[in-house]
Nucleic acid binder design. Structure first.
Lengths: 328, 328
DNA sequence: CTGAAAGCGCTTACAG
DNA sequence: CTGAAAGCGCTTACAG
């Protein structure tokens, strides 16, 4: 790959002129421009991004930190981000934390060193140390999925969605409703969805047995286990269960099937996620669609707006949609 | 962020010495090293990767070009790549082609400009123009999923897997076997799997009606449509169908269900993919597991080996495994 | 063991 | 309209 110096020599101009022609900045005579373009075409020359970055401090790269690439949620978000970024000539530098919170912090530093123009963080926690690190950043950052005080974020309305879901169950005649959640350190998925469940039950003056509330992690098996504990240890069996993710719901269903309980006749199931698989379970899962691509799109737009020196919203709350199918 | 110059001043040494201390190259007195380390700790200094890249021509970034991030296959491969790369301090620069072949070429150029240390390409075609571009690359490249003459590649044994699958169907007593494939331009998925089907049928002296061979794209709906065409237009209805991907198979199943045909009693179904969803369809899908993470892991290892000046295998053929469930 | 100097490939005031 | 020069933040022979 030739350098700007060689291009300049071949076109019989100075490097400055080549640079101006390249960036359409300042004056370049028609004549010079023609010669330069010809040489560039001939050689297939493309300027080095690193040299550019060193001078201009802009890299046209956005760092994306995510807990795992292996879920539909993440890949949809990344697809959304990529869609708007690619359009503007930006690329994504990927940082996969494998759900390791330490790494979430480490990668912020690493991306800083790589001098990315901005960072999008699909967050799983809201620890103060993380918040502080993000606030100290001199490059724009947008958080997806969790809410921070001082950081622009794209959030799903977890609380309202949770209440809607439980309220829907109640409207269908259910009074005994179980809950399968996750660790409440996960503010969005763990805490808010559980709080919504509790509040809606209380508002509707429905009581809740302790055993109706179970906790799993983000996989199918733990949903199975949670359902098992719930069914085996409850005095009154719930007639409906709200699982906070589709995978948990699928695990719950598979346990119910195993012990001969029919969905939705004996136990109704509802969840949040709208994963592709949710429409092919039997029965098809009633679930909430969170528009994950939108989250990615919005996040990328926010970053770009910031880089463009436009104002940036502190917080964007995304829409959701209850998809009614056959599990309730 | 301070620069090496400021660190040098604060530690009362030259930039050269700081650099040597940083990279553990050449001699640095204990005394100087101590002072430098102290200053670095104080300031949180980290050297600029761009400046480094400009000098050393190494970026510690590997470009990954993929057709879409939104499939399990891709995200598993990326997870595999990331796993070994992250370990060695490398990061992934993502290039998503959205199945656009033009972009596959464009991104190779783009990544070249970004001076990535290597490229991993999850390929969907084997066009000569692509091959030539890859051969001309001065950085190491590994292709996953397709086979090129001169380029190191990681391939699945599509032909053998296809034959195994059809042979399994035959061993179960099926004689009339349909096929749902994709565009044969996709050498691996389109051409080889179809050829395997044809060859196995011929070897076993089984005849094939034209209408038994249908083509879809990579989604569920087109599997549905393909099954519809097959069932509606065939003189003899196949008693088994080989769909080249899980999604196609799921589409096929949903059409069969719609017209009241039972799986596997009336029509058996088998496919390739082993996606997570395949175990939760009803009945659970008999399918082939291709070990996608392994493909990513191997590819990353190959790139690293090359960068380490070790020899690199021209071609690695991955293992597969038939998962027998209830759709046959 | 250490530092001065050159150079990686660009961009950007500045002078003409 | 154009070019010489400086500088971005590093590393690396080289001389001492």
């Amino acid at each position: 790959m030739p350098t700007i110096k060689e291009i300049a020599e071949m076109a019989n101009v100075s490097r400055s002129t080549v640079s101006r022609a390249l960036n359409n900045s300042g004056y370049v005579s028609e004549d010079a421009r023609k010669r330069i373009e010809k040489v560039i075409k001939q050689t297939g020359y493309v300027p080095s991004e690193h040299a550019k970055a060193l001078r201009t401090k802009k890299t046209k790269v956005i760092g994306v930190i995510l807990p795992t690439i292996q879920t539909e949620t993440s890949s949809k978000v990344v697809a959304g981000i990529d869609q708007v970024l690619a359009n503007q000539g930006y690329q994504i530098l990927l940082a996969n934390t494998h759900l390791d919170r330490e790494k979430e912090m480490e990668y912020v530093d690493l991306l800083k060193v790589r001098q990315v123009d901005g960072i999008i963080l699909i967050a799983t926690n809201t620890e103060d140390s993380l918040a502080k690190k993000l606030e100290e950043l001199t490059i724009p950052v947008v958080v997806i999925g969790q809410e921070f005080e001082q950081i622009p974020s794209i959030v799903y309305d977890n609380y309202q969605a949770g209440r809607d879901v439980v309220s829907y169950l109640i409207s269908k005649g259910h009074r005994q409703i179980g809950f399968v959640g996750v660790d409440e350190k996960d503010q969005a998925v763990g805490y808010l969805r559980k709080q919504a469940y509790l509040d809606e039950m209380e508002t509707q003056q429905l009581s809740v047995e302790d055993t109706w509330i179970q906790r799993g992690v983000f996989d199918i098996d733990s949903g199975y286990d949670a359902a098992k504990r719930m069914i085996q240890h409850s005095n009154q069996r719930p007639t409906a269960i709200f699982a906070v993710t589709d995978r948990l719901a699928i695990g719950v269903m598979s346990y119910l099937k195993e012990v001969g309980l029919q969905v939705p006749k004996d136990v109704a199931i509802i969840s949040i996620g709208a994963s592709e698989i949710s429409q092919y379970t039997v029965p098809a899962l009633t679930t909430v669609d969170y528009h994950n691509e939108q989250a990615g799109i919005k996040a990328a737009e926010q970053i770009l707006a910031y880089l463009d020196a436009k104002k940036i919203s502190k917080k964007i709350t995304l829409d959701y949609r209850l998809i009614i199918r056959n599990s309730v």
